[in-house]
Amino acid sequence: MSFIPRSALSKVLVAAPFLLQASSALAQEEEVIGWGIVSDNVAALILFTLFSGVVLYQIGQARRGKELFIRRIAGLNAVEEAIGRSTELGRKVMFVPGIGTVGEVETLSALSVLKHVAKHCAEYGTPLEVPNKDPLTYAAAREAVKEAYLEAGRPDLFNEEMVPYLTYDQFAFTAQVTGKMVREKPAANFLIGSFFAESLLLAEAGQSTGAIQIAGTAQVAQLPFFVTTCDYTLIGEELYAASAYLSKDPVMLGCIKGQDIVKAIVLLWIVIGILVLSATGSTIMQDLLNSSLGN
């Protein structure tokens, strides 16, 4: 080591990562890519196939007319109650589909619930407002609400101002929505979708107006805020099950059943892992799971 000049060593150390990067890029260029499986993702592919297989099997069972039970979800049962309360008070219903893009599954799930809510609002003639932050979500939400009013046989009640686009900025959006909540005092607020730092601001503003609030998100960090400030909260998977639960469609319920079976398998895996670790000190179950997830 002492024979190498210090300045040269530091140059080599600085250049090493770039050299490694360049050599791996060259190696990739030389590699002839054909049809095949990405070797790092083989275990994930097996898990994906298992999951899809179980879900598709349950869909098949449901199509054959097998009775499926789905537990009661209080937050979804309260949807009609909230809309009914707004109708009685003659005040509007506000539905915020989160601030996520339409490419997020959470947002798509929120749009499914939105359609259900909009249909009930149309049937009861209750005013509805759906403020949006993401432009793509805005376009999808407008279509969903429009179709819901058509289905309810009340296209005359729909106008495009019911689904306004506010702004692309997170806190400017929050300021506008909380302002609307305080000024216009909707009787029911639905905060369903992908939420981040604005979750508590929106939910607290709604809570201060005395509105009945139903929230739902899969963002774990935001759930405590919603649980604290809202009357009902759809926690994680309940949000994704919402459309199946509300539609009572047996095929969709089959999907939920399949998902529950896979969850039971995961739970069993964890329990066996704990037992094996406690009894033998081996982390084989954990290692298998880590490698299957590509860690």
């Binding site: 999951f51 879900v55 869909i59 999808a140 099950a241 095929v251 969709m252 969850k263």
Partner: peptide
Amino acid sequence: GAALGAASMTLRILLGIERSWLG
């Protein structure tokens, strides 16, 4: 639970079983 729920929802959307988000 949420990850499995999201995967199930994605499958429903891809297979065209879940269409309400399209209106």
